[in-house]
Write a protein that binds this DNA or RNA. Structure first.
Lengths: 193, 193
DNA sequence: GATAAAAATTAAAGTAGTTTAACAAATTAT
DNA sequence: ATAATTTGTTAAACTACTTTAATTTTTATC
């Protein structure tokens, strides 16, 4: 199991000794996902939180008209999952699937609770992770309220320069909240400037 | 100092003994805000996290055209503040002011860090608070992507039936991401049904 | 390497939501 | 109580973005 990335990620926030590290690793499971394979479907219970060590995934909904809306992308070094379904063990409203062949490390709710009990420092770790995610989401909400589609697109590529290359325009437009047609129009307009 | 509400709030998530409770309370300060008074302005450092024991506040930005966009309301039993500015001690991008005469309990970063050190259980408490906030924000992002203005309005009043009565339509429209004129049109249309 | 399937482009018509402006109603200040 | 200010309403013109549909380009599959 390739745990280097997750251990390095954790050590940026809290210090673990050897025993704690080994205990944590013992709670993880590896899973590989082929492109287009689902990690979670609407109606499923989200049984694990998932740390991405390789690849790219998306969390999205499908509305009544069949359109997809992406609430987040996840790449290496990020956590994905439906936190609400995970915590309450109720059916998820989200789909999660792989946009590239991917590899994740999984931890179940039972094991995460064990972890919090045995190594309470992890409460801190997940608090810090959540803080960052909360701040990023708040910024996105503000931009959805105050920016035009063009501004949101420019901000997206500025903030995630490497990510855009890994995504189709269709995925980007589903994240920005516009149609693929309009994103294409925007891009032409911008390239003519 | 009226600490009943905050202690009750905390006890829903973690158990505190008398000493811990007293220590926590010793770190708090009370502040009263008159209607329209600012708790934070763009460019200020956010020096405290704030628990509302009475009243109603809003966190918002003002865009280049002078329009206000509300990222969250806060009422009794909620925390407000600019978490990013608070954590990094960098200038805030948000304004926070009182929509009603309000009363809050404040804790500084120094005292919060002291609290985490002396009573690590509070790491858990804030993790749980953040989890709920994260989930709520994710739902809002999804709705901003997939719902029409009418659907967002109906969802808002369904989800916060008591809150709408305390807000002007102008505030509601700034939260929904539409103009006050259009909200008025929507309301007429809905009342005619 | 050919074929099928999906993604991107372009144009033209359509619509949800904005803008402006004038007025009415409600709230706040004196 | 009155005046001043802010909020809400209505209508009409406007615009950012959508929809539909046809064509081209790219990617996936056998």
């Amino acid at each position: 199991m390739n745990t280097d990335l997750i251990i390095q990620n954790i050590s940026q926030h809290i210090h673990l000794d050897k025993t704690e590290t080994d205990f944590f690793i013992s709670l993880l499971q590896t899973k590989k996902l082929k492109r287009k394979e689902f990690l979670l479907k609407q109606g499923d219970l989200c049984k694990t939180e998932n740390f991405i060590i390789k690849g790219c995934l998306r969390t999205y909904t499908i509305d009544d008209n069949g359109f997809e809306h992406i609430v987040m992308f996840g790449i290496e070094d990020w956590w994905v999952g439906d936190l609400y379904s995970f915590l309450t063990q109720s059916p998820s409203t989200y789909f999660i699937d792989a946009l590239e062949d991917s590899e994740i490390l999984q931890i179940t709710k039972v094991n995460l609770d064990k972890l919090f009990e045995r190594v309470p420092k992890f409460e801190r770790f997940f608090r810090l992770i959540l803080q960052n995610a909360f701040i990023a989401q708040q910024q996105r909400i503000n931009q959805n309220l105050s920016y035009s589609a063009e501004q949101r697109y420019l901000d997206f590529i500025a903030k995630h320069p490497n990510l855009e290359q890994r995504l189709s325009q269709k995925q980007v437009s589903a994240y920005l909240g516009i149609t693929p047609v309009f994103l294409s129009i925007l891009r032409r307009k911008l390239s003519q400037k």
